[in-house]
Design a protein around this nucleic acid. Structure first.
Length: 265
DNA sequence: ATGCCCTTCAGCGAAGGA
């Protein structure tokens, strides 16, 4: 079986319009085959198609006004497979799946889930995060039963382990780190998926998000919450995984940075 | 101590993020 060499990236861009110059410069420099964007924060009608298509990319957009929104950019032929994960009314735009070169590229922007508790107990926001992850696990399971090659990438809003935070103790009780949520991560891993960063870099500490507040980046008080999970045949092709930390130091930076993998032919 | 910051929409603050 022959494959295409593929560079696939993910980036929670925190508004594609506010970040367009940074996005175009990054694409020009790194030229990924595929880029999964989260938090584009716009509807399809105002997505910057012209500028992105001028760089040789086709854009598949699942937009929403003001909040959320995901998109997949590709230099290869792209076929949409799904944009719904959880069959509830008013589903926010947090999911988009497309087939590219025989790979199911699943772009996720998981619910944050905070605040986790209020006076009445677990909040609806937190319960929704758990339901959303249950639906994601079921969707991935379905694709695995069909022997699909799957790249599951995006903003998971999960700190998998203590090593994935500069100060794990500060995240105790937070919806990104509580045991119930880390258990959802383990459910995914136990389906047989490989964390691209962990696979290549072991327990080396690296972060993909630093809060805008309190000089978090200057203090390197970050967390690793943007991830690539791969099915085994794709993990076998994994050549590298890079976290583009330098993007956090730019003017008008997103609070997340790009993560990129290379898959061998 | 979810306040610090940033984005959107719609105004001259609120909501949401993580």
């Amino acid at each position: 079986m022959t494959h295409h060499f593929l560079k696939i990236a993910t980036w929670n861009i925190n508004s594609v319009r506010a970040r367009l110059p940074l996005l175009l410069a990054w694409l020009q420099q790194h030229k990924p085959d595929v880029l999964m964007l989260q938090e584009i924060k716009c509807e399809h009608a105002v997505f910057p198609f012209l500028e992105i298509e001028a760089m040789g990319y086709t854009a598949l957009v699942h937009g929403q006004k003001s909040y959320n929104g995901v998109a997949i950019l590709s230099t290869h032929p792209i076929q949409e497979k799904s944009r719904s994960l959880i069959s509830e009314d008013n589903e926010p735009a947090r999911f988009l799946c497309a087939e590219i070169e025989g790979v199911d590229c699943m772009n996720i922007y998981a619910p944050n889930g905070n605040p986790r508790m209020d006076d009445a107990g677990l909040t609806e926001k937190f319960r929704y995060k758990l339901r959303w992850y249950a639906a994601l696990v079921a969707d991935v399971q379905q694709r695995l039963s069909q022997h699909r090659a799957v790249v599951l990438a995006g903003d998971y809003n999960i700190i998998p382990e203590a090593v994935d935070a500069a100060n794990a103790a500060a995240w105790e009780g937070d919806a990104l780190y509580v045991p119930e949520v880390r258990k959802q991560w383990r459910h995914l891993m136990n389906l047989g998926l490989y964390d691209a960063w962990r696979t290549l870099h072991g327990t080396q500490q690296a972060y993909t998000f630093w809060d805008y507040q309190a000089g978090a980046f200057q203090r390197d008080d970050g967390i690793r919450i943007d991830h690539f999970l791969l099915t085994p045949s794709l993990a076998d092709r994994l050549e590298n995984c890079t976290i583009h930390r330098e993007m956090r130091a730019k003017e008008k930076a997103s609070d997340h940075v790009p993560v990129m993998i290379s898959l061998g032919a």
